[in-house]
Amino acid sequence: MTPMVEALIFILMAIAAIAGAVTVVMARNPVYSAMGLLGTLFSVAVLYVLQLAHMVAAVQVIVYAGAVLTLFLFVIMLIGVDKSEDRDEKLPGQRLVIAVLAGAVVLIAGGLTFFADFDWVPAASAPINPDLTNGTVQAVAEPLFTDWVLAFEATALLLTIAAAGAIALAHYRRRSQE
C-alpha cells in the first residue's frame, strides 16, 4: 500500500465518519440516527485497520456495531419512538451551550493541527514492526494481562457492578409502582 492510497482511504473514511456523525445529530428519525452511528463506527474501524490495529478494528465492530448498536435499535423499535414526537427540551438553552462548547473544541483541535507542525507519517512507509502486523492480539493481550492486570480486573469488576446495579434499579422501580 503506497502512501497515496493510504491518504486516499483516510480521506474517504474520515469524510464518511463525519457524515455519519452529522446524520446521528440531524436525522429526524431515530433509526436513521442509529444507521449514521453505524457508518461512523465502520469508518473508524477502517481507520484502525489503516493504522495496522486490526484487533481494535474487529473488536470495535463486534462490540459497538454488533452488540451496543443492535441494542439501541432494539430499544428504538420496541418502544416505538418512530417519529420525532418529544422534541421540547428539558434544560433551557442547552443547544446554545452545546454549540458553543463543540465550536470551541473544533477550533482548538483545528488550530492545533494547523499550527503545531505535525508530520504525516503513513503507516505504509513507517518501519514495520512484525509483532504489530502479525499479532496485534498478542501485542494487546500481553501488557494487558501482565503489567496492567490490576487495572483490567478493576474495570471488569466495575462493569459487573454497573450491570448488577442496573438490574437492581429496574426491579426496585417496578416494586415501588405496584
Binding site: H54, A58, I62, G66
Partner: peptide, 14 residues
C-alpha cells in the same frame, strides 16, 4: 487474516 475468527464474529453480528 490473523484475526480471522474475530472477523467472522464481526460479520455475523452485522
Amino acid at each position: 487474516l490473523h484475526i480471522g475468527l474475530l472477523f467472522i464474529l464481526a460479520m455475523s453480528s452485522m
